[in-house]
């Protein structure tokens, strides 16, 4: 185990915030489905996955809070929009369209599994241990969402069309997941965020394309332009501020109070 040099602390916190913020927003969006999903049994299952995402975010915020001296709740509820590091795709609302919810989860779960496996090799032991545990749970999510892609892609003409439409719309913003955080290369060089064994974007694209093919769906993904500045650097879509206003509505009534 190494002690993190001071100049890497902020980038490392940013990297972990990217993971945690992605998970919080995704869990937040998905938890809203509780009670309203298309089948009661899936309602229960999807809610479990949403709870996993939020529980993962909580565990990560606790680590980050230790690193930069704050609390998990202050990180989740007490930051302004520009301090978040989540990607555009997790901010996208679904308006209770199941195809959008499933496709959003599809892009994110496959990405997260790769990202967590990478973090599981981190030279920072607490983070590596946590990432290892979370990656095992992410596996459940990947299997769950893949089966929905296949069932709905191969279901009826209507379900295939709806899935294709949602997939196309989200494929345009899904690569936002790959936008690097500031000073990411320094974390990679220090092995805190070890280089992926194979090109991460290619691996991700191949996994997704294979499932899409099995599901009678077409998928066209392009790597993000290196010039893009987005959520990983605090520049968010128009969907984040209203999401935060809703999420923090009660917290902001009395931020120092216990709830």
């Amino acid at each position: 185990m190494i002690t993190l040099p001071d100049n890497l602390k902020r980038p490392f916190a940013d990297l972990l915030l990217a993971v945690a913020d992605d998970k919080l927003m995704l869990g937040h969006r998905n938890s809203d489905w509780t009670g309203l999903a298309p089948i009661l049994e899936e309602d229960i299952a999807f809610s479990s996955l949403a709870q996993d995402e939020m529980a993962h975010a909580q565990a990560l915020y606790q680590l980050i809070a230790g690193l930069i001296g704050t609390s998990a709740d202050a990180l989740a509820f007490g930051r302004k929009s520009e301090a978040f590091r989540c990607a555009a795709i997790v901010e996208a609302p679904d308006e209770f369209d199941w195809a959008t919810a499933i496709c959003r989860q599809f892009f994110c779960d496959h990405f997260d599994r790769l990202r967590l496996r990478r973090l599981a090799r981190s030279s920072d032991k607490p983070v590596a241990d946590l990432a290892n545990r979370l990656a095992a749970e992410e596996q459940i999510h990947v299997e769950h969402v893949d089966s929905w892609m296949q069932r709905l892609g191969r279901g009826t003409d209507e379900s295939r069309q709806r899935m294709q439409k949602a997939l196309d719309r989200l494929a345009a913003i899904a690569p936002s997941l790959f936008e690097p955080i500031e000073h990411e290369h320094e974390l990679v060089a220090a092995d805190v965020y070890p280089r992926a064994e194979t090109d991460m974007f290619e691996t991700w694209r191949n996994e997704l394309e294979q499932i899409a093919n099995d599901s009678s769906l077409k998928l066209d993904l392009h790597p993000p332009s290196p010039q893009t500045i987005g959520g990983r650097r605090g520049k968010h879509t128009e969907h984040l501020p209203p999401l935060l206003d809703e999420m923090c509505e009660v917290y902001r009534l009395e931020p120092n109070a216990a709830w």
Binding site: A37, P38, R151, L152, T156, S159, R162
Partner: peptide, 17 residues
């Protein structure tokens, strides 16, 4: 809102590969 989903798995060719 969920009808098309149930329809796909009840009536469609929705088995897994």
């Amino acid at each position: 809102q969920g009808r098309w989903v149930r329809h796909a798995i009840l009536r469609g060719n929705a088995g897994l590969p």
